[in-house]
Every structure is written in C-alpha cells, then in structure tokens.
Nucleic acid binder design. Structure first.
Lengths: 119, 119
DNA sequence: CAGTATCCCTCCAGATACTG
DNA sequence: CAGTATCTGGAGGGATACTG
C-alpha cells in the first residue's frame, strides 16, 4: 500500500495518491499510517524514546534521507509524531511520538502476537 | 507496502520484491499479509463467510480480475485462506478463511479501535 | 465462471549530489 | 546536521481481450 496525504501538497512528487481518495476512518486509516514501507521501523525506534534525524537514519539500515523525510512527514501529518527544531548551529531536530502515536503500541503488539502464533 | 512472495515466481510480473527480502517473522510478516492494497478488503469480505470469485469481484468496487487473482494468491500462499474448486460446469471456486486467517480478526479489530479513538 | 495473457503507463523508491 | 533537488528503473496496477 502506498501512503496518502491531504490535498495541499507540501511534498513535491511524493505521497500523492493517484486520485484524491476519501479515507474512511477505520482499518484503511490505520494501514495508511503504518502500512508504508518504512513507517513501522521508524515507529519502532521512537517507541524507545525521542530520536534525532541522524539517529534514525543510522539505526534504520540504509534508508535514504529522502525516504526518511517522506516517512517522518507522513507520520507527522497524521499526528503520530511531533517534530521539534532547536535553533542551534548546526540545527538540532528531534522526533517524538504523540499520545496518538504511543497508542499504536497495542496495535503493533497484536501484529507481533499473530505472527508469533502462526509463522 | 507492497507484497512480497517466495522465490519461485508463480505470478509473472507481480508481487516480486526488488531484491529477495528475508522477512523476519513479526510485524513485517503481518504487514506483508494485510498491507497490500486490496488484501484487507478481501479479508473483510471473507470474515462474512465463504465467497466466490465473482462475489468478491462485485463487492470490492471495481477491482480488476488480475488484481483480485494476485491478492487471493498471495493470501493463499500465506495460508490465511483456502481455495476450493468444484468440477462443475462452469467451474465453481470458493474462498474460505483458514484458522490462521480467522485469527487476523483480533488484529484488524485493534486497528479499528485505534482509528475510532484517534481519527 | 473464473480466471490468463498482454499491453501499457504511471509513479514511487532509491541513488546521488547538493545546501542553509 | 538535517534535510532538499533531481533523475531514473522498473514494479505494480488498470484496461482489454481471450479461454478451459
């Protein structure tokens, strides 16, 4: 599945659905949030606490900066994480899960349980 | 996300990962099963009981036969559904969830709960 | 009925290079 | 450091026609 986003396109060339799709708020929405190729890997890292861009890039084997940015942006737009920039030199940026993001934990846990049982 | 499959390629041109990927048996595996564009829509139908190819095609808005076949095959390979063909004329084919497939229900339910709470 | 077989084309992932 | 800008191949999905 691919990721979708709102009409106003902040990200040239990425995450634009073929046709604007009305996402009914249910499984489809949940899958939109975690279904991306990298989403749950980023989330997994953030469950361990606040992380910086570089940290994420290093801990997620060879994700390109573009893919990481796209994924982070998509998660941010869906309100599961928060981006905070500190005006240091050079810039410092931190990513933290929101309560909505933390709450994904139960969902992910069910997935692990299912896989553990059947695979 | 896209779907992945085993090395022996039964489906020309579809569901072939760019590089063969070792799927660790966890969230990744669960996402591989339900993460496809059509997978959970097919599953949703089958939770309501056994269905035939044509029924699925009609109830899932305008899915092409090719995509439906691909999705069903992928779900079958992952052991979440079973295909049964009856030698009638014309052919009758039924798709039914396996226990492994039925058990996806808890997972899907968690997704709905999350979405209901936060969206 | 339940699929294959093709063609075709979109469009996104990943690589690379660059920058405030 | 934390990203953009740009280019590209090829998967993956639709449309259509056909068949056991």
């Amino acid at each position: 599945m691919s990721l979708t986003e709102s009409k106003q396109n902040r990200h040239p060339g990425n995450y634009v659905p073929k046709q604007p799709v009305h996402i009914e708020c249910s499984i489809e929405k949940a899958l939109d949030v975690i279904g991306g190729k990298w989403s749950f890997l980023v989330l997994r890292e953030l469950f361990g606490g606040t992380k910086r861009f570089g940290e994420l890039q290093r801990s997620i084997s060879s994700i390109s900066p573009k893919s990481l940015t796209d994924t982070l942006r998509h998660l941010e737009e869906n309100g599961v994480l928060e981006r905070t920039a500190y005006p240091t030199v050079p810039v410092t940026v931190e990513y933290t899960l929101t309560p909505k993001g933390e709450d994904l934990h139960r969902m992910l846990k069910e997935m692990k349980l299912w896989a553990a049982k059947w695979c």
